[in-house]
């Protein structure tokens, strides 16, 4: 059987969703952001939600999310995405409203907005990329940076006496009465990508059904910030990140 007999439109089983446009993404090679962007575009396309979705992009590497996924977007100030999403969803309850935030945006400067939006039970989905480092500004310590982990601002490793402990914010959000679904996923293997996709679908369905706040944490790599190859970063994440940030549902009501 020749290649040309296989590559026919009727045999196509996977391709880039059209909602993910042709603009080359600015992310470093191997960055987890790209996979999650693709999943969001896939889900919106498959479910036919593209024309009712409003995304809120963060400050950080994903600031330009709006350049890649062809839906309505607003770009928030650093950490404030859940506040914007609160108003957008309250004022347009028929829309699918989600934020897309990194660990600095969601768990440092925006902790207050995250906790209070979830505590009010705002009917929004929060996609949270946790790669334990500030990517955009050049690899500084994040609230989720692991103990001992070297970053630009913890060059000898994160120390408890100087920097405190890594923040497991999804556990905090899971404790709140307003959250309905809190899960931790990853996108480093095909199976993980499928599970992450199911989790994001569930979070989006919750937003549409008005069930409360959903938080999908994606434990991710920042191979450039971690100074590894993408494949090495995946292995390092499994070995180190999953201990502090174990994969699975924290809450599903």
């Amino acid at each position: 059987m020749e290649i040309n007999d296989i590559i026919k439109p009727e045999n196509c089983v996977y391709k880039k969703p059209t909602l993910l446009n042709d603009t080359n993404m600015h992310y470093c090679p191997g960055c987890s952001h790209g996979v999650v962007h693709k999943l969001i575009a896939e889900i919106l396309e498959e479910k036919g939600w593209g024309d009712k979705a409003i995304g809120v992009s963060p400050v950080g590497c994903a600031v330009f999310a709006y350049k890649y996924v062809d839906i309505d977007w607003v770009e928030a100030a650093h950490g404030r995405a859940p506040a914007l999403a609160t108003a957008i969803k309250r004022l347009q309850p028929d829309k699918l409203v989600f934020t897309y935030q990194g660990d600095g945006d969601l768990a440092a400067i925006g902790t207050g907005e995250t906790i209070h939006a979830a505590n009010r039970g705002e009917n929004i989905a929060i996609i949270f990329i946790n790669n334990a480092i500030y990517g955009m500004t050049g690899g500084q310590m994040a609230p989720t940076t692991l103990l001992g982990m070297k970053t630009a601002t913890t060059p000898y490793g994160r120390r408890v006496d100087l920097n405190g402990y890594p923040l497991a914010i999804s556990e905090l959000v899971a404790h709140l009465d307003g959250s309905c679904y809190v899960t931790r996923q990853s996108v480093h293997t095909p199976a993980a990508v499928r599970k992450a996709k199911a989790a994001i679908i569930h979070a989006f369905e919750n937003s549409m059904a008005g069930k409360g706040t959903s938080l999908v944490e994606i434990v991710s790599t920042c191979n450039a910030g971690w100074k590894m190859t993408p494949a090495q970063a995946n292995d390092w994440m499994v070995e180190h990140m999953f201990k502090k940030y174990p994969i699975g549902d924290l809450k599903n009501e």
């Binding site: 296989i6 026919k8 391709k15 880039k16 990508v193």
Partner: peptide, 16 residues
């Protein structure tokens, strides 16, 4: 599998 993990959605897959 390759397409699922590809961060830049560069891979189209055909199967028969």
């Amino acid at each position: 599998s390759c397409a699922l993990v590809c961060p830049d959605a560069c891979i189209e897959v055909y199967k028969t």
